[in-house]
Computed example of a mutant assay.
Amino acid sequence: MPSIDDVKNYLAGHQVDVWEYEQPTPTCETAAAAVGCTPAEIAKTLLFLVGGKPAVVVTCGDMKVKSSLLKKAAGLSGKVKLPQAEDVLEYTGYAPGGVCPFLLRADLPVLLDTSMQRFEKVYAAAGNDYSAVPVTFAQLEQLTGGKPVEVCDPA
């Protein structure tokens, strides 16, 4: 399981800062309050199980993932389900509330919803629920190896 120090070290090698807070940042609303931005600018990292296979979606805090678009983008079929907390930890290495898009397993598909492109920067978690990472969409692509897709509608 990667620690926040692992994430910091990885991102430092790419000249990307990790911001840490005393107040918790586990939701889009609490993270936005800590960062000083809108909830839409928070890049939430979500794990889904599609036909029992995991896929990660990174999207804006004001967006909702559409199952049909997720299945098509991931090339998977079957029922789309939100996992249990222990599944999130198993597949991502992070606990819910602090899941970040960095240092994920190589076999875990990462889908980057293009809704994030409307912002100069978005703020992702850094592996715990007291952190934020300011990144551009291009940096997210580079740092995660994620695939740009359209899988969301406004919540």
Rank of each mutant, 00 (worst) to 15 (best):
S3T: 15
K8E: 12
A12H: 09
A12D: 15
G13H: 03
H14D: 01
Q15K: 11
D17H: 12
D17C: 02
E20S: 12
E20Q: 14
E20P: 02
Y21W: 14
Q23E: 14
Q23I: 06
P24Y: 05
P24E: 07
P26K: 07
T30V: 02
T30H: 09
A32D: 14
A34S: 14
I42A: 09
A43T: 07
K44L: 04
L49Y: 05
G51H: 13
A55H: 09
V58D: 00
M63E: 12
V65E: 02
K66V: 10
S68Q: 10
K71G: 01
K72T: 15
A73R: 02
A73N: 10
G75P: 08
G78S: 13
K79W: 14
V80S: 11
K81A: 14
Q84P: 03
E86V: 04
L89S: 14
L89W: 11
T92M: 02
G93E: 04
A95T: 10
P96M: 13
G97I: 07
G97N: 13
V99L: 03
P101V: 03
F102M: 08
L104G: 02
L104H: 04
R105H: 11
R105K: 13
V110R: 04
L111V: 05
L112F: 10
D113H: 09
D113N: 13
T114R: 14
R118L: 00
A124T: 09
N128T: 03
S131M: 04
A132S: 15
V135P: 00
T136P: 10
L140S: 08
K147G: 07
K147W: 09
C152W: 00
D153T: 11
P154T: 09
P154N: 13
